[in-house]
Amino acid sequence: MNEKSTVVEVDVREDIKNNIEPFKKIMDAVKTLEPNQQLILHAPFNPFPLYKVLGKKGFTHQSEQLEKKHWKIIFTKKEVDRQ
């Protein structure tokens, strides 16, 4: 791996608690990722709609419920096939 950080971490739990829409914050972080880099998202629920949105952008995901209102989701940007 190179020296550049391979992980970007975003926590939207406070945003959602304060009725702030977190979608732009998440998508701004996604735009900075390169192939094989990861976005770790902390959310108060399992964000099913986001899986489809980011899946179309080439991301896979793994989710884990850490507490009642704390989900950790790891999105990984897939390497682009160049043939």
Rank of each mutant, 00 (worst) to 15 (best):
M1D: 13
E3L: 13
E3N: 15
T6Y: 12
T6H: 12
V7H: 15
V8E: 04
V8W: 14
V8P: 09
E9M: 11
V10H: 01
D11Y: 01
R13V: 08
R13Q: 05
D15F: 13
D15T: 08
I16T: 05
I16D: 02
K17G: 10
N19V: 06
I20H: 02
I20Q: 03
I20G: 00
E21L: 12
E21G: 01
P22N: 01
P22V: 04
F23G: 05
K24W: 05
K24R: 09
K25G: 02
I26Q: 00
M27V: 04
A29E: 07
K31Y: 13
K31G: 03
K31F: 09
K31R: 15
L33G: 01
L33I: 05
E34T: 14
E34Q: 10
P35I: 06
N36W: 09
N36F: 07
L39M: 07
L41I: 02
L41P: 00
L41K: 00
H42T: 03
H42L: 03
A43Y: 05
A43W: 04
N46Y: 09
N46E: 10
P47L: 04
F48M: 14
P49Q: 07
L50P: 00
L50T: 01
Y51P: 05
V53G: 07
G55I: 11
K57Y: 14
T60V: 07
T60D: 12
E64H: 05
Q65Y: 06
E67T: 08
H70K: 07
W71S: 01
W71E: 02
K72I: 02
I74Y: 04
F75Q: 03
T76D: 07
K77P: 07
K78P: 08
E79C: 10
E79L: 10
V80K: 15
R82H: 13
R82M: 15
Q83F: 15
